[in-house]
Design a protein around this nucleic acid. Structure first.
Length: 569
DNA sequence: GCCGTTTTCGGCCCGACTGTTTTCAGTCG
């Protein structure tokens, strides 16, 4: 049972309790615990097997620990089953409608016996809902609208899918004369791999005018909120955008609040309370007096904390690190001197070696590695012994001609038994070897771990590409003992890839952080299949930063000579 | 339900907006 599955059961329980009218703080406790479980590097299932004490985890006490153990051991939760018998599951689904919370849903159920979307729609159309106390015609309208817009539960956009519109919105708002500053905050600013909605913070002395201007943006399909300082819309691609207009004096505090994450902000506010201060989106207050608000620097400073980069704000230890000045100095794109994973027309890429090299040179790189597929799958149009020797010869020729160093490499398939698709004879001719799993993704954890470990023990392998083999929104990670892989990587001088393809971003943030803590080092690579995709490297940098990765942790920040020295094993 | 160098009981982040009511509850992030 995966951590994410355990988390979703806890969350489901919280939803049922909410409908039941349970103590709101109890509900929050379950949701908080779900978040902790979800963002845990370690696997809960393993911890339970090892009889570790789950109450050592933050926000998990005796009750929830027992429930988690029940879930892991039996695959279900008695308490949840009971609630499901009592409350129709279709009723809980109604929570996903905008504007309908537990209290209203309960009232609809008790008074009109509404249990699902269909009955809700009927009641709204026949105007039965407006007659209930606390309800009215506007709510009927909102329900009907909501049913039409009905969001897929938990749907998130890829970062790359919102990047363009985020930029457009920022420029659109910036061009308004009454606007002082604009930032896209929220999970976008924290550079999460996927984004549920955009949060924009605007500094202005004329909030209302800015909101009105915002509501004129061309791609708006639906206006949900139109207040004095706050607007919320849904764009025609179904992306929700929130905008908050705030006076310049308060901009830093507001930016901090709207950048989140929620649990980072809550923890920061709690810390402030402990210090006798109070924080809201307008500033840090000592009594009635504002002591910090203009910049985020000020806000952190007021709490005696070093500035925390947005990518770190997940309440995963960054506040403690800031207290004791142990924050990492996060890697930046400019730190990279080369790119160690890309494809050409020798396999499934679209450009020649020379075109890739020239484009890389253009980006300021000193070296690249050409790592075409060496595979037994015909689909990947992979290399064979003859073809790769030809490719290496071409690289030799180009190296004497171009003003960038091209390393001979290959992305060699790890076969089911952990052997490699290319012979050692081939591998030893390469300057650097990237190994990857592409097939047999559903092996048991034990088999998968054994397989990859064997591959890493091959003395010619240097980098393990996309270790999770997940595709965001499409395919989960392979089932593998990452701790074991990290240990073997560390012991054998294997570098773990942070793959920059927007659907991969693999390793992810949590595992990268865990690997780093174990002393493993990384290669941040584009895995480009054409010259344009070389730019994807920025997404890999994002993910690496979220994983607390520093320049010194990354192989391709080294000058070529040092790199070649560093990969020796 | 969780948590605790002021606490094992009594707190729990905090404010905007909406729609319903005529001062506020519910919802949301």
């Amino acid at each position: 049972m995966k951590n994410s599955q355990i988390a979703s059961i806890l969350r489901e329980l919280a939803n049922y309790l909410e409908i039941e009218g349970e103590n709101p703080f109890k509900i929050r406790a379950y949701k908080k615990a779900a978040r902790v479980v979800e963002s845990l590097g370690e696997e809960i299932e393993q911890m339970v097997k090892n009889r570790e004490d789950l109450t050592k985890l933050p926000s998990i006490g005796k009750e929830i620990a027992a429930k988690i153990e029940e879930i892991v051991k039996t695959g279900r939760l008695q308490k949840l089953e009971e609630l499901k018998r009592k409350i129709p599951p279709s009723l809980v689904e109604l929570l996903s409608l905008e504007g309908l919370g537990a209290k209203k849903i309960k009232a609809l159920y008790e008074n009109l016996n509404i249990t699902n979307y269909e009955e809700l729609k009927e009641a709204a159309l026949s105007h039965k809902i407006r007659e209930l106390p606390g309800f009215g015609p506007k709510i009927e309208e909102k329900i009907l609208k909501g049913l039409k817009l009905l969001k897929q539960e938990g749907f998130r956009f890829l970062y790359i899918e919102v990047e363009e519109v985020a930029k457009e919105l920022k420029e659109y708002i910036k061009s308004f004369s009454l606007v002082d500053r604009v930032e896209v905050a929220g999970s976008f600013r924290r550079a999460k791999e996927s984004i549920a909605d955009l949060d924009i913070v605007v500094s202005t002395n004329s909030p209302k005018e800015v909101i009105d201007y915002f509501l004129e943006f061309k791609a708006i399909e639906e206006i949900i909120v139109a207040g004095e300082t706050k607007g919320r819309v849904v764009l025609d691609n179904k992306l929700q955008v929130d905008l908050r207009a705030i006076k310049p004096l308060h901009f830093g505090a507001a930016l901090h609040y709207f950048t989140g994450s929620q649990s980072h902000v809550v923890a920061i506010r709690q810390l402030a309370l402990d210090m006798g201060l109070k924080i809201n989106e307008y500033g840090v207050f000592k009594g009635e007096k504002i002591v910090a608000s203009k910049s985020e620097d000020e806000v952190y400073g007021a709490l005696n904390l070093a500035y925390i980069e947005p990518e770190l704000r997940e309440n995963r230890g960054e506040i403690e690190a800031a207290k004791s000045n142990r924050l990492p100095i996060l890697i930046e794109q400019d730190d990279l001197r080369g790119d160690l994973h890309m494809h050409t027309i020798y396999s499934d890429g679209a450009n020649s070696i020379e075109e890739m090299a020239l484009a890389a040179k253009e980006m300021g790189y000193e070296y690249i590695a050409i790592s075409d597929h060496y595979s037994t799958i015909a689909l990947l149009k992979g290399l064979n012994p003859k073809k790769i020797l030809k490719e290496f010869e071409e690289i030799d020729r180009l190296n004497s001609k171009l003003n960038i160093s091209i390393l001979k490499s290959l992305e060699v398939d790890i076969l089911e038994d952990g052997s490699l698709a290319a012979s050692d004879e081939i591998l030893k001719r390469a300057d650097i070897v990237v190994a990857a799993v592409h097939t047999k993704l559903r092996l048991s954890k034990k088999e998968q771990t054994k397989r990859v470990v064997r591959a890493l023990l091959n003395r010619y392998v240097n980098i393990l590409a996309h270790p999770m083999n997940r595709l965001i929104r499409k395919r989960d990670s392979i089932d593998i003992d990452f701790k074991e892989i990290f240990k073997v990587a560390k012991d054998n001088n294997i570098f773990l890839e942070i793959n920059s393809q927007p659907t991969r971003l693999d390793l992810n943030d949590i595992l990268a952080k865990e690997a780093k803590e174990m002393g493993v080092r990384f290669a941040i690579s584009s895995d480009a299949h054409n010259i344009k995709e070389l730019e994807f490297i920025k997404y890999g940098i994002n993910q690496a930063r979220r994983g607390w990765i520093e320049k010194k942790d990354v192989l391709n920040t080294l000058p070529l000579e040092e790199l070649l020295e560093a990969i020796k094993r």
